[in-house]
């Protein structure tokens, strides 16, 4: 099976976020990491390849820094990478991000495309499904298991509150992958070495420009949400805070 995995670089979970001057995005001087469900999507693609043979290709769009996620993916075992490299790519909405991907892979023939179920930064939860529609492929979302069969694949969709559902579908297809579908592997030293020689294709904005249009939505402003609840902050050295907490537990919460 030939599988494409969309991997996005997002600010690290613990990174302190500051707004940019125009208040439309965060300042870029933070540390980045791979979007968590995308790491699971890569792992799943590698496992499918180990079972059925084929190729795993990873794709990202974003500035030069985003190449890091591709390098890591190659070190873990992906065969090649595609980087839509331009600062302008991150300013695209999900619709146009998907259109840029579709244009960049038009000469490839994939059986499956994996995306994460949503990004940890913008959290739109749309790019994969939009891409499926643009390609005219079927899709399934929030996937926790994938089995190949004669007619295509059987996937396990996660539903709310602990429910699941199996779905049979033909190939090619787009799947959005949920965190926890598998156990992640680490890159090995030899993998990291080999990654250096694996092909990484750069796609300039000009190459896909004709496929993208003006954004269909606009971020007017970004801000720190206002607190609505009256939270009591307990302060002081740890020992004192612990004492205060125990008092609250006894006198206010009344569980002791």
């Amino acid at each position: 099976m030939k599988i494409l995995v969309c991997m996005k670089q997002v600010p690290q979970k613990d990174a302190p976020l500051k707004l940019n001057e125009t208040g439309t995005w965060i300042r870029e001087d933070v540390s980045y990491e791979v979007n968590e469900p995308d790491a699971y999507a890569l792992e799943e693609a590698l496992r499918q390849k180990e079972k059925h043979g084929g190729e795993v290709v990873v794709i990202t769009s974003g500035p030069a820094r985003a190449q890091q996620v591709l390098r890591e993916a190659l070190a873990k075992g992906a065969d090649r990478a595609i980087h839509l490299e331009d600062n302008a790519f991150v300013g695209l909405d999900a619709f146009n991000t998907a259109r840029a991907f579709a244009a960049a892979i038009k000469d490839d023939q994939f059986d499956l495309i994996f995306t994460g179920l949503q990004s940890d930064d913008y959290g739109y939860a749309q790019t994969g499904v939009v891409l499926a529609e643009l390609l005219g492929w079927p899709h399934a979302t929030i996937i926790m298991q994938i089995e190949k069969n004669e007619s295509g694949i059987r996937v396990k969709r996660e539903l709310e509150a602990g429910y699941f559902q199996f779905v049979d579908m033909p190939l090619p297809a787009v799947l959005t992958i949920q965190s926890g579908i598998n156990k992640l592997r680490y890159a090995t030293l030899i993998g990291i070495k080999q990654a250096k020689n694996k092909p990484l294709r750069k796609v300039a904005l000009a190459e896909v420009q004709s496929a993208v249009s003006a954004n269909l939505q606009k971020i007017e402003r970004l801000y720190v949400p206002q607190k609505t609840k009256n939270t009591e902050f307990l302060e002081g050295p740890a020992g004192e805070v612990a004492k205060k907490l125990a008092e609250k537990l006894r006198n206010e919460v009344r569980v002791l």
């Binding site: 959290g123 007017e220 720190v224």
Partner: peptide, 15 residues
């Protein structure tokens, strides 16, 4: 909500 609830954004349609 953006960034897992750390920030909020006001978004409008341009379509």
């Amino acid at each position: 909500q953006m960034f897992q609830g750390k920030l909020a954004a006001d978004v409008s349609f341009t379509s």
